[in-house]
Amino acid sequence: MYIMANKRNGTIYVGSTSDLPARAYQHRTGMIEGFTKDKGCTLLVWYEAHEDLDGARLRERQMKKWKRAWKIELIERDNPQWKDLYGTLFG
């Protein structure tokens, strides 16, 4: 489970994957055509691990129904400066 953004309080994208470092890299470099590339969502601003991909996908579907304010609150609880967390994926 992860959230990408283009800037603080900017456009956000909620997704899930079984390989977060690879998926975040794809978003960062624009390898994936679509919403995140068009909107410039290159910053990994929030993520959480799940036991399995089904659990992550369920959480993703739930979060996509959330109000924007709830997503922002979630990001700011753990990452108030909206720092790019990509580097934290590698220890």
Rank of each mutant, 00 (worst) to 15 (best):
M4R: 01
M4N: 04
A5I: 06
R8D: 00
V14M: 09
S16Q: 14
D19E: 08
D19L: 04
L20N: 03
A22Y: 08
R23M: 10
R23S: 09
A24S: 09
Y25K: 12
Q26L: 03
H27C: 03
T29I: 10
T29P: 04
M31R: 13
E33F: 10
D38C: 09
D38L: 13
K39W: 11
G40Q: 07
G40S: 11
C41I: 07
L43D: 07
E48H: 13
A49D: 06
A49T: 11
A49S: 10
A49E: 05
H50D: 06
E51T: 15
L53K: 15
G55N: 14
A56V: 14
R57V: 02
R57Q: 06
R57A: 05
L58Q: 15
L58E: 07
R59F: 11
R61G: 08
M63F: 15
K64W: 09
K64C: 12
R68A: 05
K71F: 00
I72Q: 09
E73A: 14
E73C: 08
E73K: 07
L74C: 07
I75F: 06
E76I: 09
P80W: 07
Q81D: 12
W82L: 03
W82G: 02
K83D: 11
Y86L: 00
G91I: 00
G91A: 04
